[in-house]
Design a protein around this nucleic acid. Sequence first.
DNA 1: CCTCAATTGCGATCGATGTTCGCAATTGAG
DNA 2: CTCAATTGCGAACATCGATCGCAATTGAGG
Lengths: 237, 237
Amino acid sequence: MSTNDPIDIWRRPERSGVGPKPAHSRRGIALGAVSIADRDGLAAVSIRSVAARVGAGTASLYRYLRSHDELVELMVDTVSGEYDLGPSNEPPRIQLVNLALQGRSIMLRHPWLAPLLLTRPSMGPNSLLYLERALSALQAVDLSGPAKLQTVAMLTAITSSFAQNELASATASAVGSDGSLPARMQYISDVAGSGNYPLLAAALTGQHEPERPEETFTRVISNCLAGVGLPVAIDSE
Amino acid sequence: MSTNDPIDIWRRPERSGVGPKPAHSRRGIALGAVSIADRDGLAAVSIRSVAARVGAGTASLYRYLRSHDELVELMVDTVSGEYDLGPSNEPPRIQLVNLALQGRSIMLRHPWLAPLLLTRPSMGPNSLLYLERALSALQAVDLSGPAKLQTVAMLTAITSSFAQNELASATASAVGSDGSLPARMQYISDVAGSGNYPLLAAALTGQHEPERPEETFTRVISNCLAGVGLPVAIDSE
DNA sequence: CCTCAATTGCGATCGATGTTCGCAATTGAG
DNA sequence: CTCAATTGCGAACATCGATCGCAATTGAGG
């Protein structure tokens, strides 16, 4: 009868008229969940922990959402509201690169976000506004509707993947409190030294360009968009 | 003292010499887990279900792996073994497109794979062989080691994202047994009709090109690689 | 002002899950 | 033959998502 799809939360009014005034709100719950995830990771976001954070009983949260999945949906849409979606006169490619750069910042600010964006569709109002804004950047571009959507999907996929790599290498290069490098690093160096993967070893020993990750990111995104058919307008090289 | 990183499983020998012969094996367990995931989804892959499937007691699985995460790691690497990584004389871009097409097939065959590949690094032997093969395709390309790795990461990110979109739209267009279209579709049409997202609505009503998804995929990947600097060799347009 | 249905807060509880513990049974090296 | 190492696994624990039932609260209609 009733579905379990987490997007159902967007089809349900928050308040239904009669009854006592709710002591909490979707937004408050979402903010609490986000702050927990920011501090302790997504795994720490349980119904109980969020309820305790906002000062509610465990079962009370189910008056505001139907499942843990819906809570995650709320979280994603909440941080999707951190975009600055103001209009722009720049050429389409520049606009999209700007959006991607904003997305990268948001994902670095909320390390739990990237995996979620890569995994689920996310159709909340803020996410839809972002999508609408990206489409407006593509308005003058000669692409079919579906092709435009595909382009935006590709954009966020690359952005998320890039952000996740940045986050992973950041935590990987951090030495543990005991001074030993993390198991990840140890394993990689073992693999490179095993001789079974010579090309991988070579690629890893290649000099680390101290290039700003922000610039590499911009370059990759920019090139990708150029390949998909985005006109460059200003800087033709 | 000891870490919990799932990649630790690759640094541990499967058998340590003395003691009774194990009744099971990592491979058997992984195959059982994969078959369960193929049939009932990743959520159905619990320690208990896999143990029952391979005919072992629940706690016995912990003689072969240390955590549920390691089980997932095993699963990913197992299906990564489905690539055909034979050598090729084709130009780099063609080789990479072929790899991506294979990846897409594998992800369509194992619907649970794409989200995992988008989320975790995956450093098992089969995954490393795939990486090595991709790097061999890039051998003659003038890119730095890190840039090559970045390119491969981008490739798998786009592939996974694309595969996931294909899977999602496949399950979305399927009508439920009760004849009602899925909630997802209903919601999207509501959103398009609300007037709040005109560009999105326009992009959705744009005629569905009956283009083979395989061709769209090839085109997108190809264009992206061209943008990153892959020479085209044969077909210069 | 009263009535009453709708709604909220939430303690108690259920089922499932990941994981650990302890012990008997099994193996192979010395 | 000895014995330490290893395996299989039942039982148990902690935690989680989710449900149920009930008291308390609200606002609309009379």
